[in-house]
């Protein structure tokens, strides 16, 4: 008789039975400061997290300020959209509230129109800024993070004596590379006050480069965004908020009177006569025209 025994039952030796049901469970989602990044945090089965203080673990689990955490990361990563988001809050919430609360001669419809205008401009500004700058911001971050990750590993290898494979550099960016290469050299040297200062300055230069590359889009989109805002406000007000600007009453007679007055005045200038003499010569008072009101009646 032949007996084939399958005895490699490793599940019995592990306390973490659940993880074997689905290999995706091996990625812990309960740790880390940000939900998105948690998924990349592999936990060893025997020990869980590395040694951390109790406060740190609490902090990692803390979700109290989730919205603020998100906002801070967003404004750091997307400067132009972040500014537009602040503008949306102020022009879309605070300003309409103030307009509606302010006592004034304006009637309610005017106030509603002004509020709608403010909300629409905030919305368009945020929408246009986000659509136009987000891919660019992500592109800049992708380059900067690639270099940072690569050289962080290189520097870590030097400091800790490890031999980790750094992430390959995907982009050729000489002026950035030059700064990181210098940082690597500094890491090899013995730290002095001068090298510490140089290191700080190099990091600041790198940060500023990222900031400049991201924010230059604000200048590029400023004009098209304004044009789009001006063009889109009336349809948004009409179709989204259902308000339209009251057409001011035309005053054709007044316009016509102004035209006549201008012609008379031009003629007077041509003759070179003083104002008093000129008008009194044919018993004409320009203010008569200004008193004229209304249409053709």
């Amino acid at each position: 008789m032949k007996i084939n025994s399958i005895s490699n039952d490793f599940t019995l030796k592990s306390g973490y039975l659940e993880v074997y049901k689905d290999p995706h469970n091996s990625k812990d989602t309960s740790v880390g400061l940000c939900g998105k990044n948690n998924k990349e945090y592999n936990v060893s089965f025997n020990g869980g997290l590395p040694i951390q203080s109790e406060a740190a673990v609490n902090a990692i689990k803390s979700k109290k300020m989730k919205a603020l955490d998100w906002l801070l990361k967003f404004v750091k990563d997307h400067n132009v959209s972040g500014s537009a988001l602040m503008a949306l809050f102020l022009a879309g919430v605070l300003r309409p509230l103030t307009i509606m609360a302010l006592p004034g001669k304006k009637d309610k419809e005017d106030k509603i129109y002004a509020s709608g205008h403010s909300i629409a401009s905030g919305l368009i500004g945020f929408g246009v800024s986000t659509v136009l700058t987000t891919p660019w911001d992500n592109g800049v971050m992708s380059v900067m993070q690639n270099y940072q990750k690569h050289y962080d590993t290189v520097i870590k290898n030097i400091k800790d004596g490890t031999n980790e494979e750094p992430e390959p550099l995907k982009y050729k960016f000489d002026i950035l590379n030059k700064r990181y290469e210098r940082l690597v050299e500094i890491a090899k040297e013995q730290g002095t006050k001068a090298t510490a200062l140089e290191k700080r300055m190099l990091k600041k230069q790198i940060d500023n480069m990222g900031l400049m590359m991201k924010n230059i889009t604000e200048w590029a989109i400023a004009v098209p965004r304004s044009i789009l805002t001006i063009a889109l406000i009336p349809p948004i007000l009409k179709y989204v908020f259902g308000v339209e600007k009251k057409k001011s009453e035309p005053a054709p007679v007044k316009k016509h009177s102004e035209e006549v007055l201008n012609n008379v005045e031009n003629y007077r200038k041509m003759t070179g006569m003083p104002s008093k003499d000129f008008y009194s010569s044919f018993r004409f008072e320009p203010k008569w025209f200004n008193q004229a009101k209304g249409g053709n009646n």
């Binding site: 992500n138 592109g139 800049v140 380059v143 982009y171 590359m213």
Partner: peptide, 9 residues
Amino acid sequence: TQASAWLVP
């Protein structure tokens, strides 16, 4: 994003 990252340098 990839196109932007290519254009940045």
